[in-house]
Design a protein around this nucleic acid. Sequence first.
DNA 1: CCCGTGCCCTGGCGGC
DNA 2: TGCCGCCAGGGCACGG
Length: 269
Amino acid sequence: MPELPEVETVRRILSNQLNGLTIEGIDIYYERMIHEDIKAFTSTLIGQTIHRIDRKGKYLIFILDTHALIIHLRMEGKFYIKKQDDLSKHEHIVFHLNHGLELRYHDTRKFGTMHLRSLDDYLMTYPLNRCAEEPFSIDKASFYEKIKRKNVAIKSILLDQTIMSGLGNIYVDETLFDAKIHPERKGLTITKDESNQLIESAKKVLSAAVEMGGTTIRSYTASLGVTGLFQLKLNVHTKVGELCPRCGSIIKKIRVGGRGTYVCESCQK
DNA sequence: CCCGTGCCCTGGCGGC
DNA sequence: TGCCGCCAGGGCACGG
């Protein structure tokens, strides 16, 4: 489940491999992930060059000649860069590039999405207009103003990409652990100091993970594919029954907003 | 507007 | 061994 750090790692790898290449053809084997008219999608993209790959929150943004191709990997989306090869089971979109390269989108659960927008307004239109700032750039005061009147669990608030973008189920647990805040606390009980701490913890957790992805980048090559998932150094997530690395209590698994949630109820208040 | 629920989809796992 | 049911989850549609 790629969150901001994994998407950033994918972005860096794809940038190195794809910048300057031109889309010569597209094969689409699963149309539902393309949230556009299929013919218009194909005809618009063919002939365009990939100038740059950006990211906002968990979205990848291919900057082309006239359009932005906006991709969300959801849980299991991956890209592979290959020379001609047999199609494997879960490859749903194949972009044929020059120099005989193929960019293949692979997604076992088919949850990923692609949108195509004009460069003039891609940040102001759906879906990116719904994607809030990341913890690195978010305005602290307006973040606090939003959460302090919400009567929902702080974990659910932190997962809401229209409030702050970048955290998913793994790093939200790690962020709340770092901030020593219980995931079930209602937004309206969070103080200004705690709100600021959550932003700091999110930055700390995400940037450490980006750095780990960065150190692993070198071992990934086009022939191995780009999975975007790396060994993570986790404190609580998936650690049910183990000892809290901070206080030694047993880590519990609970459900918050329908999501599996790992928490140290001794040091997260 | 606010909040909770169910849906999309498939592989993997536990139970029998 | 095989089958069945359930779970995982990001974001959105929908309903109260």
